[in-house]
């Protein structure tokens, strides 16, 4: 992951739960087909519109729900960052462990709207809205988590530590 990313924003509201991001049908599908069903109950057709490098900006309580790999579906679609007013702790862990950074920012939904282009600088902890150059700061992601994101997720961390069996199940 680069220290600076830039992407187009998709806007979502409050309480976007894991079951919306990862409907139960995904459990029975081959891995490559699972992301196509992301948000199929609340925003049918959205998954096919997402481009690699896009960003989600959402309201309160993003990711409430189960331990299912909801973040992995977002990564599969090409989403590179989630920003929300507040984020469920389990979703945040799963995102980081899938290599997807997540930022909490009060007032983000009042400032950034769908279609905006934003630049995020993880070194300086700033978000810039391209259209007017306005800048806001965010709290630094703890090193423990950022190192997992930079490694490409927890599996890659475990692989580098020699914990992964080269023979699949």
């Amino acid at each position: 992951m680069d220290d600076k990313i830039s992407g187009r924003v998709w806007g979502f509201g409050d309480d976007i739960n894991t079951d919306l991001m990862y409907p139960h049908i995904c459990y029975t599908l081959p891995e490559i087909d699972r992301p196509k069903y992301t948000m199929w109950a609340n925003r049918p057709g959205w998954a096919s519109q997402v481009n690699r490098g896009d960003i989600i900006v959402a309201g309160r309580n993003f990711g409430v729900g189960s331990s299912r790999p909801a973040a992995a579906n977002l990564v599969g679609l090409g989403i590179v960052l989630v920003m929300a007013e507040t984020v469920n702790g389990l979703f945040m862990r799963n995102a980081v462990n899938s290599g997807l950074p997540v930022l909490r920012m009060d007032g983000i939904t009042q400032w950034i709207a769908e279609g905006d282009i934003i630049q995020v600088d993880f070194q300086n902890c700033t978000v810039t809205r391209e259209q007017d150059g306005s800048v806001r700061e965010f709290n630094r992601i703890p090193d423990l988590l950022m190192n997992i994101v930079r490694s490409g997720g927890i599996i890659e961390v475990l692989r580098s530590q020699g914990y992964i069996d080269s023979e699949p199940l």
Partner: peptide, 9 residues
């Protein structure tokens, strides 16, 4: 709750 990859850790 933890995700399955994290439980592996």
């Amino acid at each position: 709750g933890l995700g399955t990859p994290e439980l592996m850790q």
